[in-house]
């Protein structure tokens, strides 16, 4: 039998730099980065895209994406993205934000960006804790979940209930696309990629605010192994944060990605 010529079936996307990420082993940030980079490559928008990095574990996201980037203050990425997009409406502008950043300190900025129908794309990483500061309770922390600032478990009487951002943002008239996906197994990773592609297609078509919430793992701060943390997403997080399309602009019907 003749040897078939070698074929490249898997490589680093053009939109990712060769810089090794600074994330913990087993963290799903790296997967989310790769999916975004693949979408930038596939849509041919790497050179017209501007990313806005948050404060949190992904504060150094700009080191890993090979496109123009700015670094926002904590929670303010949607406001900063708004400033860029209003000056350069033909560019693709996206933010990458964690749950403390987006759902706590940046609540006003994200809600109003959606309310204005700001034509930006938001990739929202929900891992139910503040990662960078060492695993404190986030607005997305599950009821009963132990964190370094809820050592007895999140008591909803004291600390309130988890915030469902994809659902909340879907209520905004300015939102063109709001969905939740998960990164806990290959099937869901593929679905997440399609959603990210769709969110950027929304922006490209000028259909308003687009957000993909991604359920993500934090083995380090959850105190679980990588395997256990992926199971934790599936068994514990998904029941609280359903993986659904909460709003899809009708103009997207028939768009195949």
């Amino acid at each position: 039998m003749m040897d078939a010529p070698a074929q490249v079936v898997y490589k680093r996307p053009e939109s990712l730099t060769a810089t090794p990420t600074t994330y913990c082993p087993g963290c799903t940030h790296g997967i989310a980065h790769r999916l975004i980079a693949e979408v930038l490559d596939e849509m041919g928008i790497q050179e017209i895209s501007i990313g806005v990095a948050p404060v949190g574990c992904s504060v150094f996201a700009y080191n890993f994406f090979d496109c123009d980037f700015v670094e926002a203050a904590h929670g303010r990425a949607p406001a900063m993205a708004t400033g860029i997009k209003r000056v350069l409406p033909e560019r693709i502008v996206f933010t990458y934000q964690g749950d403390g950043d987006l759902a706590s300190i940046g609540m006003a900025e994200i809600m109003h960006a959606a309310g204005r129908g700001e034509n930006i794309t938001v990739i929202f990483i929900n891992n139910a804790v503040y990662g960078m500061t060492g695993g404190q309770m986030a607005p997305t922390t599950l009821p009963g979940q132990k964190t370094t600032s809820s050592p007895y478990g999140r008591d909803v009487e004291q600390h309130g209930y988890p915030l469902r951002m994809a659902e909340a943002l879907a209520t905004m008239d300015g939102t063109g696309y709001s969905v939740r996906r998960s990164l806990h197994d290959p099937k869901h990773i593929r679905l997440a990629k399609k959603a990210i592609r769709m969110a950027f297609e929304v922006q490209k078509r000028g259909l308003g605010f687009s957000i993909v919430e991604l359920l993500s793992s934090c083995p380090t701060n959850w105190g679980l192994s990588v395997q256990e943390s992926l199971k934790y997403i599936e068994e514990r997080m998904v029941p609280v944060y359903p993986l659904e399309d909460f709003k899809v602009n009708p103009a997207l019907i028939g768009v195949k990605v």
Partner: peptide, 20 residues
């Protein structure tokens, strides 16, 4: 021109726009 939701947002919009 944009009337922001707060001065916090306004200055961060300025920050983003200034980057261009």
């Amino acid at each position: 021109f944009l009337q922001a939701e707060s001065e916090v947002a306004a200055i961060n919009m300025v920050y983003g726009a200034a980057c261009t």
